[in-house]
Amino acid sequence: MKPRVFLGLVVSAGLLVTACSSISQIGTSVAVATGQISPGQAAAINQSAQAVQQSFQDFTPEQEYYIGRSVAAVILTKYRPYDDPAATRYINLLGQSLAMASDRPETFRGYHFLILDSDDINALSAPGGFVFVTRGLLRCAKSEDQVAAILCHEITHVVLKHGLQAIKKSRITAALTNAALTGVEVAGPSDVAQLTATFSDSINDITSTMINSGYSREFEVQADRGAVDLMKRVGYDPWALVDVLEVMKLRLKPGGNDFAKTHPDPAFRIEVVEKEIGSAQRSTTVNPERQARYEAAMAGI
């Protein structure tokens, strides 16, 4: 009986305290093995225990949106917007069309795209769907398909919540614990001050990753693979991503404060992309309407 009392404690720890699904999983698997609970019950317990673990997935879509807005505002301190209504309209028509076909077409307030007035070769996407691309990067493209390739990479970062994952775990715990404690009352001034401090730190985590250190190589590989899949799904030529990367390979300057610093080498990315494209054939025809509207919209780029 004593081991079972212990087991009960282990399971209850997994259930009722905030923490550890691995402990409860061990507990539940033992409980299933000894016939105390059914596999179905075990699954439910494990799911519940996992649900109380705090991770980036626990930010609500609304919180993700507010984080994204402020990350966007910080990006706009580094770069100024390129105020060309025709180009902005085009990039949004294209970007929103692509996002609609993504694995996550619905975010709290949708996807929005803005061109940045800079020669840097850079693109940044803030949580929730605020996507930025520089004129320098758009100049690496020669067709709509190639611009689509750039946007699909950024959309995939949003879909996979890579930005939120740059937030340090300690902040997530602080934010969500505070949220839990104040969840049933109106937040007082000290709660707001505390949350704002955590919010500010979270924004810094994301922007410093995005602007300075870059995401992990793994996240970039995921974004490139996701871009290829999304392009195939919508009907753009996935080889266009290779074409843009070939141009970037020539234009990125070592030590540059842009993709040169934050993204894997284009040659490596091309390998990843070609593998993902597989046997799909390169498109040999150019749709004249598509090329004409691309050239008209990007004339000033």
Binding site: E62, S70, G183, A187, V192, S202
Partner: peptide
């Protein structure tokens, strides 16, 4: 509670 509306919201922004 992990999905509580309190947290990063308009007030915090």
């Amino acid at each position: 509670v992990a999905l509580a509306g309190k947290g990063f919201n308009e007030q915090v922004e």
